[in-house]
Design a binder for these strands. Structure first.
Ligand SMILES: [Mn+2]
Ligand SMILES: [Mn+2]
Ligand SMILES: [Zn+2]
Ligand SMILES: [Zn+2]
Lengths: 132, 132
DNA sequence: CACCAATTTAGAACCATTATAAAGTAGAGT
DNA sequence: ACTCTACTTTATAATGGTTCTAAATTGGTG
């Protein structure tokens, strides 16, 4: 399988569970946003195998640490993750609690004029809240 | 007191507890960022009166709804609030978990080129993550 | 096969936040 | 001032997403 090498290269053993999660997360053309519970549902639907919730948390965090997923900074009762790991931004539909990708080209360059001593900029993320 | 009218104008009864919370939040020159627990501590330090945690939650949410406080979109185990209700942005120091204000003038104009049908932009918030 | 570290797992624990429901209070009307 | 009622406070319980635990399982190396 194509994910075995990817996992090995990251120092992660290619277990059955991790490979299944990879298929759900990365076998699609379009990237998407998800919560842990939504991912759990997707896995249940796609396969007959049930993966322990603890394993899903562990795997998502491992993938995030390796840079295969991004966490989206937003206030919600659940953490949102993104399979789109390119630099990009988000619309947040307050009514439906849905995220929509906003490409860098749709925002234009952001030039942070202020500097903080001894610190480097790791990321710049724009959240555009939408109402009716 | 100066907060009585402010509360009345918002349709909020000026109770002893709300006035005390107003003093902690708004009696200072500088604005600041806080979590509910930090606010609870501040109240305990400033006054001898103890305010129920439920009341602190209720009041903070009431003030947020009235526009006297803003919630900061960030992933943390606690929700961050801001007494600075002007349009502005934030640095987030990943190492220390601290927020630093970033004025609009330090970011420059942000022009969102994409539109979502039937939706209006309510706010645009930039989060700049800092590492060492 | 033998071994060991990495991984999975069910369930418990954690803890910020929200819900509950009873007691207290502010303010309008009389 | 007294009443009345809707609003507010409060202690406490419940909720629910996330993390922890410790035992069982598994992957990979030799
Ligand atoms: Mn994480
Ligand atoms: Mn709120
Ligand atoms: Zn995205
Ligand atoms: Zn701020």
């Amino acid at each position: 399988m194509k994910y075995i090498e990817k996992l090995r290269n990251s120092g992660l053993r290619p277990t059955k569970q991790r490979l299944q999660i990879c298929e759900v997360l990365f076998d699609t053309q379009k990237t998407f946003h998800f919560t842990i519970n939504e991912l759990d549902q997707k896995i249940k639907n796609k396969t007959n195998n049930k993966i322990s919730l603890a394993t899903i948390y562990n795997t998502v965090h491992a993938f995030e640490k390796k840079g295969y997923l991004k966490q989206i900074p937003i206030n919600s009762n659940q953490t949102y993750f993104d399979t789109n790991i390119t630099d990009h931004h988000h619309f947040y539909d307050l009514k439906y609690g849905k995220l929509i990708d906003l490409e860098n080209s749709d925002v234009g360059p952001i030039n942070i004029k202020r500097k903080i001593d001894g610190k480097k900029i790791k990321s710049i993320e724009v959240l555009v809240k939408l109402e009716d």
